Amino acid sequence: MDAGSAEKVRLMPWAEGDFWLLRRNNSPEMTEHLGGPESEEKLAARHRRYVELETGGMFRVVLADGGESVGAIGFWEREWQGATVWETGWGVLPEFQGRGLAAAAARAVVETARAAGRNRYLHAFPNVDHAASNAVCRRAGFTLMGQSRFEYPKGHWITSNDWRVDLGEAPLDARQ
């Protein structure tokens, strides 16, 4: 699907009532490349972190037309190769996949991170075997920096691709 035909999305700040979406994203299908589903206790702690996130942001992805919730995306700070950067991650519910929604949400989160002005780079670290998430990075304008060993979740090491957006550059639309 080309970017022009993708559906439009909006990012809504994560709220108390969004725990259901976290549960939906916790299925074996949705966590296959992330070490598998988390316990209810870990989900509750994750939800609390999302609600209370002080730097960056976590969002519910909704269709611009109609407002239906289709997934989640966020960005947060992490240390990476001696610098503080933003990291992003997302999940689009299975019934909404294949429609360009994750790439649209990723482009929106790039602009949100750019507007935050706090860090120069935004990274995504999908598993090298996760073709769909790597395609989202490509479609959203990230640059592949190479492969890295990455611990996620804690104690579970994977080989991931390091995709990066330089937030100091003009947005893609402004360069075309």
Score class of each variant (00 low, 15 high):
residue 70 V to R: 00
residue 115 A to G: 13
residue 44 A to C: 13
residue 55 T to P: 11
residue 82 G to R: 02
residue 37 P to S: 09
residue 68 E to F: 09
residue 68 E to T: 14
residue 122 L to N: 00
residue 66 G to S: 13
residue 161 N to M: 05
residue 160 S to M: 08
residue 159 T to G: 09
residue 139 R to T: 04
residue 107 R to Y: 06
residue 83 A to E: 14
residue 174 A to F: 13
residue 132 A to K: 06
residue 113 A to F: 05
residue 101 L to N: 00
residue 160 S to W: 05
residue 26 N to E: 12
residue 142 F to N: 01
residue 146 G to E: 10
residue 170 A to H: 15
residue 125 F to Q: 00
residue 9 V to A: 02
residue 142 F to T: 01
residue 84 T to A: 09
residue 165 V to A: 01
residue 165 V to H: 00
residue 19 F to L: 14
residue 46 R to F: 10
residue 85 V to P: 02
residue 29 E to F: 10
residue 72 A to K: 05
residue 123 H to Y: 05
residue 13 P to R: 15
residue 108 A to G: 03
residue 89 G to I: 03
residue 62 V to S: 07
residue 153 P to M: 05
residue 116 A to P: 03
residue 171 P to H: 13
residue 172 L to I: 15
residue 136 V to L: 01
residue 155 G to N: 13
residue 27 S to K: 13
residue 102 A to N: 02
residue 81 Q to M: 11
residue 140 A to G: 03
residue 110 V to L: 02
residue 107 R to L: 07
residue 66 G to M: 07
residue 162 D to W: 12
residue 22 L to R: 11
residue 163 W to Q: 00
residue 70 V to P: 01
residue 6 A to W: 04
residue 10 R to C: 04
residue 51 V to H: 10
residue 159 T to M: 14
residue 112 T to E: 14
residue 166 D to Y: 12
residue 142 F to P: 00
residue 160 S to H: 15
residue 34 L to W: 14
residue 121 Y to I: 03
residue 27 S to M: 06
residue 55 T to E: 10
residue 175 R to M: 12
residue 24 R to F: 08
residue 129 D to I: 13
residue 110 V to D: 00
residue 127 N to S: 09
residue 99 R to T: 13
residue 57 G to F: 06
residue 23 R to W: 10
residue 5 S to M: 13
residue 66 G to Y: 11
residue 103 A to V: 05
residue 20 W to N: 14
residue 4 G to M: 15
residue 106 A to L: 00
residue 43 L to P: 02
residue 5 S to H: 12
residue 105 A to I: 05
residue 91 G to T: 11
residue 106 A to V: 02
residue 51 V to A: 15
residue 86 W to D: 04
residue 97 Q to F: 03
residue 58 M to W: 11
residue 134 N to K: 08
residue 159 T to R: 10
residue 88 T to C: 14
residue 174 A to R: 10
residue 176 Q to A: 09
residue 99 R to E: 13
residue 75 F to N: 05
residue 154 K to D: 08
residue 43 L to Q: 06
residue 24 R to I: 11
residue 138 R to A: 09
residue 8 K to M: 15
residue 44 A to M: 10
residue 6 A to C: 12
residue 28 P to T: 07
residue 121 Y to Q: 03
residue 26 N to V: 07
residue 4 G to N: 14
residue 31 T to R: 13
residue 137 C to F: 00
residue 35 G to M: 04
residue 20 W to L: 14
residue 140 A to H: 01
residue 146 G to Y: 06
residue 5 S to Q: 13
residue 121 Y to H: 04
residue 158 I to R: 07
residue 124 A to G: 02
